[in-house]
Simulated scan of single mutants.
Amino acid sequence: MQILGVDIGGSGIKGAIVDTLTGELVSERHRIDTPQPATPEAVAAVLAQLVLHLGWTGPVGCGFPAAIQQGVVRTAANISKAFIGTNIDKLFSEATNCECHNLNDADAAGIAEMHFGEGAGQAGVVLLITIGTGLGTALFTDGNLLPNTELGHVYLENGLEAERFASDAARKLQDLGWKSWGNRFNIYLNTMEKLFWPDLIILGGGASKKFDKFKEQIAIKTPVKPAAFLNQAGIVGAALYAKSKVV
């Protein structure tokens, strides 16, 4: 089954048609800049442009940077607060004339990893962490997703919010070397281990590409692996989520 998967981010909205049986993209990966200001109506209009560009008329899955409950946006840490309370399933469906299903963007990436990546076949508790502007998380137990965990917003023992202390944005803002930042990130991993005792932690997002530069600083018992999917994880996972809603 083919479904259009979309990854809605703060700087770009990216999408491609996905073969949900293999996880492969079967169209070009098209990107349009996120409108500024990124109001609900403006984002919906860009999504409609993307759908039109790809000539798509079927179901659409979207990964979105917020906690989403029954299609309604509940948080706005890194997006316009105008989205809070908006039913984006309804808004995006009306804008595109397609059936749209939305989920948290880190959850989308996690679904892709659990189906086709490092988490495939892994029993027990798996935690995916996306390292970028913030720290996104997706938590699975025996392959089942607990949605909207948003564990980048937990407070660490040093009193700081995790993503303000250990995200890739924090590394860049404070001009930290990979080893110094890796020590910070290990503090966050240690907190996650104490809370959930996962069987596997998977690292996604932009910084995961540099895993070799900070892996020596990771000192927890849980196995930690970089994600198999990189830029297309959110697209593939969003398509898989939409498939689960329409089949």
Rank of each mutant, 00 (worst) to 15 (best):
I84G: 12
N97K: 14
F116P: 06
A106E: 04
L21E: 15
D7S: 11
F165C: 10
L146P: 01
L127S: 07
L203V: 14
Q2G: 03
A38N: 13
D105Q: 07
A170Q: 07
I235L: 09
G132W: 03
I3K: 01
W56M: 06
S244D: 07
K179P: 00
R184L: 12
W197Y: 14
E94A: 14
A106V: 14
A76K: 05
S80E: 06
A82L: 15
E118D: 01
M192A: 12
R171D: 04
A219K: 15
G182W: 02
D168P: 00
L240D: 03
K90A: 06
Q70E: 13
F165R: 02
E163D: 13
P198A: 08
L203W: 01
Q122C: 13
K90N: 05
N102L: 15
D175F: 00
V26C: 03
K225W: 02
I129W: 00
G55F: 14
I202N: 12
G10L: 08
F64N: 09
Y188C: 08
L21C: 05
A238D: 02
H101K: 08
T137H: 04
Y188I: 03
P35S: 08
C98N: 05
P65Q: 01
L25T: 10
L47Y: 05
H30I: 15
K215P: 07
T75E: 04
S180K: 14
S167F: 10
A108T: 11
D168V: 01
W56V: 12
V154N: 02
L54R: 10
G55M: 04
E94M: 00
T86L: 11
K210H: 12
C62R: 03
N148Y: 11
Q49L: 12
L139T: 14
Y241M: 11
S180L: 06
W178I: 05
L146W: 02
A38M: 09
V73G: 04
V18R: 03
L47T: 15
V72G: 06
F214T: 10
A170G: 08
D107H: 03
I68A: 04
T22R: 10
R31D: 08
M114H: 07
R164D: 13
I88R: 07
T20S: 05
T86P: 00
H153L: 09
G182V: 12
A16S: 15
L4C: 02
D107S: 06
G132P: 01
